[in-house]
Write a protein that binds this DNA or RNA. Structure first.
Lengths: 216, 216
DNA sequence: AGTAATGTTTACCAATCGGTCAAATATCCG
DNA sequence: CGGATATTTGACCGATTGGTAAACATTACT
């Protein structure tokens, strides 16, 4: 049994650990910008700094690499939503959820784009995860939000669209980064824009754009 | 000169009109879900209901089809922003901008996904349009927003991020449609969700989530 | 009708794709 | 060291890719 791909109870070698990390990192880079079908094994191999057959020694197929990446992304991508605490203060919870999602867009833009690519293409590989675990989690959090609304802590509005809008605004900074960069031009300064974005989004979600009425 | 692809001052045939429409429509369908590199000419030809060489009689290369589509998308995609009127009432202008963008997401989801795919992949074909015309237009509208803010019509906030957030929230319903569908499940009823989305977004952008203070 | 231009198809090409294989090489361990 | 195991490579395969050439069919126009 000299094939790591057929590993059963077999122990994994140091080299296996390293190479698999290299491959997955390279694959994340390429998949996230070209999508599954637009990515070639040769591309991944080149970025990973190894030959194609060598890469295929660690992952039998292109699908196998993609599958591992998608599983990891899905697993970690929902962490911020899971951390959404119904015992906390609604305002603080929403603020920190926005901040956490924004941090993920900043720290893991490739993962975000991989996910975006997958969903854009009709989510062929993760549809079950969306209609299953994801939906269940969102349903649960929607109930929390509704409870907050009934208690008058936040205004009444559709909790699902609220969650969508947080996803959309935060992931935008990862998925549409080159557009953000192009439009901001000079203003796109290093990491400062994430603070700007965080400040703006928190204000938007808390108070909206209209100035507070002088009370009628 | 029997080649429509080399047409100079030549008039276009009825058949040319029809076939080009068919091809572009089919190509929009395929490109928008698989991206440029993930799309094959055969796929487009099949959806368009013709043979590959026949398709290539009208468009010399895959790039040529893609180029035409991108030009059209770019041209129409900014219409809502261009319609953003600095003479109008700020609140009404922002409301109708949101509504228009949401209508585009509803009526032209494929165009939205084509654009999203392009930007996700680093905007290789439209970078110049982003740093040029798009940036200029956004700069102009940002000034309008700043003027509104100085006049106290809307609260002070970064106008660029405001525009980004409108783009993100509205296009989300086209680009991430399958996710929206998966999460909403039963609630995803025909076209009604766009009304829900419009209602939510207008409320969010106008007033935010926190209930109005009883005035301190 | 006849003919020139336009449109379509069949057969094909070189390049690239995902993936295999056996031989060569490097590493681990007693 | 030596041998077993793990890793790497080059040469290769059939399928698919984007695109072409030329024969064939159809349309448009006088």
């Amino acid at each position: 049994m000299s094939d790591p791909r057929a590993a059963k109870t077999q122990r994994r070698t140091r080299i296996q650990e390293e190479k698999e990390v290299q491959i997955l990192d390279a694959a994340l880079e390429v998949f996230s910008t070209h999508g599954f079908r637009g990515t070639t094994i040769d591309q991944i191999a080149e970025v990973a700094g190894m030959s194609k057959p060598n890469l295929l020694y660690y992952f039998r197929t292109k699908e196998a690499i993609h599958r591992v990446l998608m599983e990891r992304v899905l697993d970690t991508w929902l962490d911020p939503l899971r951390a959404f605490d119904d015992n906390g203060n609604p305002e603080a919870e929403i603020r920190s959820y926005i901040r956490r999602k924004l941090e993920m867009a900043r720290d893991f833009p490739r993962e975000s784009r991989l996910f975006a690519n997958e969903v854009l293409q009709g989510a062929p590989y993760i549809m079950d995860e969306l209609t299953g675990p994801l939906k269940d989690l969102v349903d649960e959090k929607a109930k929390v939000i509704r409870a907050w609304q009934k208690a008058g802590k936040i205004v009444k509005c559709d909790p699902y669209h609220l969650i969508f809008s947080i996803w959309a605004t935060t992931q935008h900074y990862a998925d549409f980064d080159v557009q953000v960069k192009a439009v901001l031009g000079q203003r796109y300064s290093g990491e400062g824009r994430f603070d700007d974005a965080a400040r703006f989004l928190e204000q938007l979600f808390m108070h909206g754009l209209l100035p507070p009425k002088p009370e009628a």
